[in-house]
């Protein structure tokens, strides 16, 4: 028998605290695979701020710090600047990165911090029970947009990679989706490029991962992936938004 796929060693034995069908675990596994394949596990520090993935350090087997809500990129800056030889990742949700932490994110990007940002967007605040997030789609019902998100009252979904792609600091910006095996393979490819950017000391990289939240969307896991394809990807199209010279 030839092994084609195997859960990487960087993924711990600890069962995740995520709801059934939540793609956070897929993102964790991709990161774990790349850390193993690129032999980065031992030099990696992952910054886990507040969100459903707040306990991420139980699930990926690297050094880890817990950041205050939204402050991951600032904390990562402190680690990377003082220990440039370390490999620093932030793992942030859309509430964390695009709402309370948008300033830290933009400025880390503008400074060209040599960190990798993994940005998981599921369109709501999952951990606190499904409130509206900056990425919530227009018309989408959440617990704080009970009549559906309306542009006049709540503004428009925020597209972070598009915003960051127009500033000079970032070297690699991409958006992938976790809705299907095909897109998951693509997501891994993008994240690998992002990781290489840091390995080669080129600068800041960010990969947004379009994810789902079956519990708060009140859908089955399958339905929630279907919703990504039908409703989310038209608003948040996948692809590479900024690929500077030298990105492999």
């Amino acid at each position: 028998m030839k092994t084609l796929y195997k859960v990487p060693g960087a993924v711990t034995d600890c069962p995740t605290t995520y709801c059934p069908g939540c793609p956070h675990g897929v993102a964790h596994r991709i990161i774990g695979e790349l850390l193993d394949e690129m032999q980065l596990t031992r030099k990696t520090v992952i910054v886990w701020p507040v969100g459903c993935s707040v306990f991420g350090y139980y699930f990926i087997d690297t050094d880890a710090v817990e950041a205050a809500h939204g402050r991951a990129c600032a904390m990562a800056t402190g680690i990377k600047r003082t220990h440039p030889e370390s490999f620093v990742i932030t793992y942030q949700g859309d509430g964390d990165l695009a709402s309370i932490g948008i300033a830290e994110t933009i400025h880390a990007a503008a400074r060209g911090e040599r960190i990798c940002v993994i940005y998981v967007n599921n369109g709501n605040y999952g951990m606190t029970g499904g409130q509206m997030a900056p990425t919530t789609l227009l018309g989408q019902v959440t617990t704080t947009s009970p009549y559906g998100r309306e542009a006049h009252a709540n503004g428009f979904p925020l597209k972070v990679p598009e915003m960051l792609a127009v500033i000079d600091g970032p070297v690699y910006i991409a958006r992938a989706s976790l809705d299907s095996p095909k897109h998951i393979i693509q997501a891994k490819k993008f994240i690998k490029k992002a990781f290489k950017v840091q390995v080669n000391d080129l600068g800041f990289s960010l990969v947004e991962l379009i994810s789902s939240c079956p519990t708060n969307w009140k859908m089955t896991p399958e339905e929630s992936l279907e919703r990504i394809r039908k409703q989310v990807l038209p608003v948040f199209p996948i692809g590479e938004l900024k690929v500077d010279e030298g990105v492999a």
């Binding site: 509430g95 605040y125 951990m127 606190t128 029970g129 409130q131 617990t143 704080t144 947009s145 009970p146």
Partner: peptide
């Protein structure tokens, strides 16, 4: 949003 007071803003909303 922040736990454990989300029911209050949700009610306001």
């Amino acid at each position: 949003p922040i736990t454990p007071q989300n029911e209050t803003p949700e009610y306001f909303s």
